[in-house]
Each structure stands twice: as structure tokens, then as C-alpha cells.
């Protein structure tokens, strides 16, 4: 495979073993990959642990768009970003983790901005459930105990 590989192309291997051929300029938007390439410790294939094929494909799509559209209007890119990050819970979490581990600054920025917009108007209660994984049960029980405490007869 490596013999037929064009110059300035890299192979990224996802955690579940799929391989993606991407231009080096796109791959090095991840600082972690950039460091590997610069230190020349990368062989033909760069493993990307903790990131599965679907998420890796999304990250590559994002990086390609950002690489291509340097000359494009910033507003177009912004629209692309806001559409790109508008995803379901699970994908959003996986993307954040991937962007954080692989150190893809632009992607992490767009994702964090998206989550910030989402939680701006939310109550503390919602934030607790969402970020701290407080289960409904815990909240109910703690409220229950609190209610008993408040309703106690102090005579």
C-alpha cells in the first residue's frame, strides 16, 4: 500500500482498524499527529487510538474543509462549523474527546462554542444532570430527604 502512496499523504488507522489516506497538511491540523510527523517517529501508518472510524471520518471531513477553505469567506466557514457540530449527544461527546486527545484546536473550539451556546440558558439542575451524570434517582432521593427535613414537625 505504501508503495502506491502519493507524496505528502499519510495513512491514519482508527481504533477499529480502518485506514484513511489523507494529505499531510490535513493530518497535521492535529497537533498530536504533527508532533509525531515532525519527530519522524511516524511510520507510513499512524495509529489513532481511542478514535473509531466514524468519528475519525468526521474529524477528517472537518479538517479538510478548514484546509481547503482558507481563502473562502470566514462566514461560510462559520456556517459549516455550526452545521458540523450540530449532532447528537453521543457523536458530540466522541468528537470532543477526539479533538481534545488529538489536539485539533479549530474543531475543539467549534465544539466547545456549540456546547457553551447550548448550556447558556440552562438551569443548574440541568447542568448537574448533563455534566455530572447525576442520576434522576439520586436527585429524587436527595430531594425526598430534603423535603422530609423541611416538613419536620419542630414541636
Amino acid at each position: 500500500m505504501s508503495s502506491s502512496l502519493e507524496k505528502n499523504m499519510l495513512i491514519l488507522r482508527s481504533s477499529d482498524g480502518e485506514e484513511f489516506i489523507v494529505p499531510e497538511v490535513v493530518a497535521v491540523m492535529s497537533k498530536a499527529i504533527k508532533n509525531m510527523v515532525e519527530d519522524e517517529c511516524a511510520s507510513n501508518t499512524i495509529p489513532v487510538p481511542n478514535v473509531d472510524a466514524n468519528i475519525l471520518a468526521m474529524v477528517i471531513e472537518f479538517c479538510k474543509k478548514h484546509d481547503e477553505s482558507e481563502a473562502e469567506a470566514a462566514s461560510d466557514l462559520k456556517t459549516f462549523d455550526s452545521e458540523f457540530v450540530n449532532r447528537g449527544q453521543e457523536a458530540l461527546y466522541d468528537l470532543i474527546t477526539a479533538a481534545n486527545f488529538r489536539d485539533v484546536k479549530e474543531l475543539l473550539d467549534a465544539l466547545c462554542q456549540n456546547v457553551a451556546e447550548m448550556i447558556k440558558g440552562k438551569s443548574v439542575h440541568h447542568i448537574r444532570i448533563q455534566f455530572l451524570g447525576y442520576q434522576l434517582f439520586e436527585i429524587l432521593t436527595s430531594n425526598f430527604i430534603w423535603n422530609i427535613w423541611c416538613d419536620r414537625d419542630f414541636d
Binding site: 449527544q89 458530540l92 461527546y93 470532543i96 481534545n100 440541568h126 444532570i129 448533563q130 455534566f131 451524570g133
Partner: peptide, 15 residues
Amino acid sequence: QTLMEQALPELPPEV
């Protein structure tokens, strides 16, 4: 499937 229906697995503190 909105963000609010499900808890996010815990994110790293730097995120």
C-alpha cells in the same frame, strides 16, 4: 434526541 435527555459521560476538566 436533544442534548438534555441524556447525561454526557464525564468530560476532562480542561474541556
